[in-house]
Amino acid sequence: MQTVMAADEKIRIGTRGSPLALAQAHETRDRLIAAHAIAPEMIEVVVISTAGDRIQDRPLAEVGGKGLFTLELEEQLADGRIDLAVHSSKDMPTVLPDGLAITAFLEREDPRDAFISNKAKSLTDLPQGAVVGSSSLRRQALIRKLRPDISVVQFRGNVQTRLRKLSEGVADATLLANAGLRRLGMADIITDLMDPDFFLPAPGQGAICIEGRAGDVRTDALVEPLNHDVTATALACERAFLAELDGSCRTPIAGLATVDGSGVAFRGMILTPDGSEAHEIALAGPVSDSAALGRDAGRRLRRDAGDAFFSSWL
């Protein structure tokens, strides 16, 4: 412990205040304690309200996109009020503020989407004209692609808020990240898990990332044992793919990289918001070329889809 910080120095972990965000921050805290034998009272979890949490009545695409979930945390990280920020990787913009960097990825949970309904066993089993609630443009587009007869409505809010809306009959079903439900101990509410062969997850889904100040030797040493190399390799590919496509909350983009030994395989997809048009790609290569593979996949899809396709997102 003494090799990475003084015995009387507190570590401040910044996080959003939702139950899932807190679960992720406490998982990070517990891993730091285990890795460095830190006294629990020396790690403080600092809850920071973000615009993305406060604005619930409009789609994210209308009010600023993914950065709404990270801006306030990054401001406090940059000025030293917190030492680390813990995020869901799928919420992270591909371009970070100057002076900040993703310094570790925790081992990824199951990246699949979970289907939840009291009225049907699966998305396929929903009756014609059923209503599915989702705030994700990717999920909305994939639902419309697979079931154009289904109505999709906006479903903002944390996990508990969305489940309450479901119980109130606002929708017949919803989709949430399996990883988040597992971290909350709520896997029992899942009706079905979506096969990635038909329903690709979001880039980064299921992975927790730690953001720190670039070049901060103290915090780099703290989080280094927490970094999971396989997850970091997969996320390098997925985030490069996203960056090549200028991915944001305005763009229905799906992608998943899997690592097997010395190789990485990637599948990516872009869709129009109504799900009527989609372009897919599958590539594989060595783990050393993971980021290059993601960039190549993004460039190929951009070329194949053409400028007209991308203008439909705006």
Rank of each mutant, 00 (worst) to 15 (best):
Thr3Leu: 12
Ala6Gln: 10
Ser18Gln: 11
Asp30Glu: 13
Asp30Ser: 15
Ala35Ile: 06
Met42Trp: 01
Leu68Ala: 02
Glu75Cys: 07
Ala78Phe: 00
Asp79Thr: 03
Leu84Met: 02
His87Thr: 03
His87Val: 04
Ser89Cys: 13
Pro93Ala: 13
Val95Cys: 06
Pro97Gly: 13
Ala101Thr: 12
Ile102Pro: 01
Arg108Leu: 08
Arg108Pro: 07
Asp110Val: 13
Asp125Trp: 00
Asp125Tyr: 04
Gly129Thr: 06
Ser134Glu: 08
Ser134Asn: 07
Leu137Val: 11
Arg139Asn: 10
Leu142Ala: 10
Lys145Asp: 02
Leu146Gly: 01
Asp149Arg: 01
Gln160Met: 13
Thr161Met: 15
Arg162Tyr: 02
Ser167Ile: 11
Ala173Tyr: 00
Thr174Gly: 10
Ile190Pro: 07
Asp195Asn: 15
Phe198Ile: 03
Gly206His: 10
Ala207Arg: 09
Ile210Gly: 08
Val223Ser: 04
Asp229His: 14
Arg239Pro: 05
Arg239Met: 14
Ala240Asn: 12
Ser248Arg: 08
Ala257Tyr: 05
Gly263Thr: 13
His279Asn: 08
Val287Ile: 15
Arg295Thr: 10
Arg295Tyr: 00
Arg302Phe: 00
Asp304Thr: 06
Asp304Pro: 04
Phe310Tyr: 11
Ser312Val: 12
Ser312Trp: 09
